[in-house]
Amino acid sequence: MHVSFQVQAGDFSNAGKVSSTVKGILKQLNLGPAHIKRIIVALYEAEVNVVAHSYGGTITCEVEPESVDIMVCDTGPGIPDLDLAMTEGWSTATPEVREMGFGAGMGLANIRKNTDRLAIDTGEDKPTRIHMCFDLADGATHA
């Protein structure tokens, strides 16, 4: 099944709404709590990244019985040095953003930790496309 959402840049008061909605959907689909948890942690980080660092974007989720695919696409400005951005604790977040409890520099690292396959397409002054795949093999459902 397919769902998609718009994410507004700078709208911190609504950051997390998409991941909450997706969580509700996954719970109705009877995915195991452990899978739901890692999907939502990764999605939340990606959602906050769009709010905090981009000009806005879209999130689309494809839910299949064996896997969940999530595409997070923004309209720029892109990540100039991806390797650096993947480092835990590294952040370009402004002091204002950090004041609100975001920007601890765990975003991309946390995403990598929770996904089974991760592809990031980005660069300076380019849109960023994050493709997260989650396999729902063993233990995906409750008995």
């Binding site: 099944m1 719970k27 109705q28 689909l29 009877n30 995915l31 839910v63 299949e64 019985p65 729902l136 995906a140 459902t141 409750h142």
Partner: peptide
């Protein structure tokens, strides 16, 4: 909460 015990049916 689930719509079906089987994930593909639930989808």
């Amino acid at each position: 909460l689930q719509l079906d015990r089987d994930v593909s049916m639930a989808i």
